[in-house]
Simulated scan of single mutants.
Amino acid sequence: MYARAAIGLVPGFNRPGWLPEAVLERAGVTVDRAHLADYSRVCGFRLSDTLPATYPHVLAFPLAFRLMSRRDFPFPVVGLVHVANRIELHRPIDADEPLDLSVHAADLREHPRGRQLDVVATASVGGEVVWRDVSTYLRREGKPSGGRREGEPPEPPAASAQWRLTPRVGTDYARVSGDHNPIHTSRLGARLFGFARPIAHGMWSKARCLAALEGRLPEAYTVDVSFKLPVFLPSTVAFSAAPEWSFALHSARSGKPHLAGSVTPV
């Protein structure tokens, strides 16, 4: 699939101006307990028989990547920027429950910096949707519109924890998620796409934040995050959480925002 994605970058590769109508599905997906334990360790979750809310995302990732690598997808998957993610956990999911996964693309729309689209994944048990994931991607096109914002940037919230992140964050998450994009695992690969150093996966950042809230989350909830500035590896980040279920990730050194999120109980 990565070879197919690379071919999509070749000049003259014709693409449609609309989203494919395809729905990719995989039925009866079972959880490998060793993989779940490895994922939980990498993201900071405790070992449990209940799946972390972000875990089905890695189960659905092969379907999502295959969808975005198709010839009838409007953009090459390499170069798309993951700008937001919403997960709806309808109820706790036991690790022994087989999952029926479905992935499709939706809502191609204009954006001041280009165009956006959503990749929607669902997990069902016995015909009941128990989990839904909406990943929003941006295709940058042309120059950003508008001038600089006036005034000083807001002060970051007080940190409740600091995490020192090494380059292994990128390589370890690539191993457990299947997302081997070189911007996360290679200094040279990152430089080819305009980054001075490898950057952490956005979904690792989201998972790590939810792990910090583990034990306090409701049984059913929606968790929204916006990915701001990239988290370079290595670096130190500051995590903050508020009683009203908002949380954030900032640079511990400069205070620049990396992620802003909120949890809504259902």
Rank of each mutant, 00 (worst) to 15 (best):
G28Q: 05
R109Q: 11
G189K: 02
E21L: 10
K143E: 13
G170F: 08
R168S: 15
D94Y: 00
A196G: 13
V78Q: 05
P157Q: 08
L165F: 13
A207P: 04
Y221Q: 01
P156Y: 08
G44S: 09
A252T: 07
E21M: 05
G126K: 08
F195G: 00
G189E: 09
P198S: 13
A37Y: 00
R164G: 11
R71A: 15
I183T: 09
A252S: 12
H35I: 06
G202F: 04
N14G: 13
A64D: 02
P74K: 11
L108S: 13
D179M: 11
L89R: 15
R86Q: 14
G127T: 06
P265D: 08
Y221S: 07
R33N: 06
H104F: 11
H258L: 06
V83Y: 00
H35Y: 01
V119Q: 04
A105Q: 03
P198M: 12
A159P: 06
P257N: 10
H250F: 05
G114I: 06
H35M: 03
T236D: 08
L188E: 10
L24I: 06
F247D: 02
P62I: 08
A241P: 01
A64Q: 15
V130M: 09
A242D: 14
S40V: 09
A105K: 03
L165T: 02
R91V: 04
T166F: 01
W245L: 14
A174C: 01
R164D: 15
V31F: 06
V77S: 15
I7F: 14
W245R: 14
K206L: 13
L89S: 12
G261M: 11
R26Q: 15
G215H: 05
P144H: 11
G146P: 05
G127D: 11
R33C: 00
V231R: 00
G114F: 11
L101C: 10
S145Q: 10
T171I: 08
E150T: 13
R86G: 03
R113Y: 01
L213H: 01
A200Y: 10
A248P: 03
L108F: 04
E141F: 00
H90T: 00
V83R: 06
R132W: 00
R132M: 09
T54M: 13
A123P: 05
W245N: 14
R46G: 15
H57A: 12
D32K: 02
F61K: 04
G114W: 02
H35A: 14
G189S: 04
G178C: 09
D100P: 07
A248S: 14
I93C: 04
A159V: 08
E128N: 02
Q162W: 03
R46M: 09
R26C: 05
V263K: 03
A241V: 13
R70W: 02
V77M: 15
T50E: 15
W18M: 04
P20I: 03
P182I: 14
P198L: 10
S254H: 10
Y173L: 07
P153D: 09
A241T: 12
T264K: 13
R71D: 13
V81T: 10
Y55Q: 10
L213G: 01
G142Q: 13
H111C: 03
I199T: 09
L63I: 08
F13N: 05
A190S: 12
G215T: 11
T54N: 07
A6I: 15
G178E: 07
G194F: 11
G146C: 10
T236F: 04
S69F: 05
S226I: 03
P198H: 07
G189W: 03
T122H: 07
D72N: 14
E155T: 14
